[in-house]
Design a protein around this nucleic acid. Structure first.
Lengths: 210, 210
DNA sequence: TAAAGTAAAAATGTATACAAAATTGTAAAG
DNA sequence: CTTTACAATTTTGTATACATTTTTACTTTA
């Protein structure tokens, strides 16, 4: 586990209070490395939305921002159904099988951690998206998903939204398998919309979430 | 002009041959700095699509890839009309005036360089998009535009696609001003689609463009 | 008292030197 | 002749030391 992953994990678990400015020297001391690798990690984390620019220099732990979530899910609603449609034409039964395995493995284990659920969730969609063989489009979708992770990780420790989401997954998979292209896209769009609205509502009721 | 900008400018002008691997030491020597700032710059350029990962380590100058362009423009077609629609509700006459000024300044000067035209082009759209006050959505759109820049910069040295594009700009601006929301979005979508198709066609006829 | 300028402190940016990792080339074995 | 293992070289990663920039705090002045 490299420095980037360590810091990201700690951010995901809310180890650093929102709004706090992260100084290179502090972070370096905390993780017992020099400032050079810290610089690299912070730059990358900033680009991926895990950290926010802080004034003219430095970075800070971003606040939870419902408007950001709204934007992220709006974009995902536009891009992911597109990518899924492009994938559908190239879907093999083997890919569908792997996707189903992922869903089944979630269904079976009721004792999965929030992180593990989130990871499997993405693996399911990514497995389908990758079949499209559109690396650029995939990369942007993946990046949007990464930005959402911060909020999902925060929410999923308190909220359980798994069961309905799972049913939607199975319905999407079936529509894909039966080549009902438009339905699959529409289901996915609703799937994302629902998740986004739940998340925004949760953040707003929680007064910004901190 | 910092190192990041210098390297980017040289990439934009095709100073480094496509496919070439860039080694930190070489780049550092070429620009007469140490490897530390080179590392920072290369990482950022890689994240923005100006450089591609090269095996397990290092970066390389990416090839021109028509499929990448197709993806970029597909995404822009989905996201930019959305952002423009969100902006429309908040458009002031002052913003519209500034947008018109940008278009007029392009119209007047027939002796603008390719880079200048590209810059003004983006300034026009960005001026409208910013009115939406949706920083997250704007950031992604801006990033997509940055990735397109590499191709536009390459093309615009050979192709002149200005005049038709300019007419489309004026039509979009008028639709926005007259609150014809759907028309403005549709015009923008077509505007992007047209530009994308031209660019892809150009790259394909030019055998990948190198 | 408020404002502005300046000096001190703190934080980031960069160079040099060293450590770790990956690649390449070579030799030995199948 | 191909393949595998190992050593040499190359390349990237990191620590320490120094330079530059930004911020902070204090002093001076209106």
């Amino acid at each position: 586990m490299n420095l980037y992953e360590k810091i990201k994990a700690d951010l995901q678990r809310g180890r650093f209070p929102a709004g706090q400015a992260l100084k290179q020297a502090e972070v370096a001391e905390h993780y017992e490395v020099s400032r050079i690798p810290v610089r690299d990690a912070l730059q990358r984390l900033k680009n991926e939305g895990w950290l926010a620019p802080h004034g003219k220099r430095g970075v800070a732990v971003p606040q939870f921002d419902p408007l950001e979530v709204e934007d992220l899910y709006l974009m995902r609603m536009r891009l992911e159904p597109l990518l899924q449609s492009l994938a559908q034409k190239k879907l093999t039964s083997e890919t569908i099988g792997r996707a189903r395995d992922i869903l089944d493995s979630m269904e079976g284990n009721p004792s999965l951690s929030a992180e593990q659920i989130g990871s499997l969730n993405w693996q399911f969609h990514a497995c389908i998206y990758l079949a499209a063989e559109r690396p650029t489009l995939f990369a942007t979708v993946e990046q949007l998903h990464r930005q959402c992770e911060r909020y999902i990780g925060y929410q999923s420790r308190r909220l359980h939204y798994q069961s309905t989401s799972q049913k939607e997954h199975y319905r999407i998979l079936e529509a894909l398998q039966q080549k009902r292209e438009k339905e699959a896209a529409a289901l996915l769009a609703r799937h994302i919309e629902t998740a986004g609205k739940k998340l925004v509502a949760f953040l707003r009721t929680a007064q910004g979430g901190h």
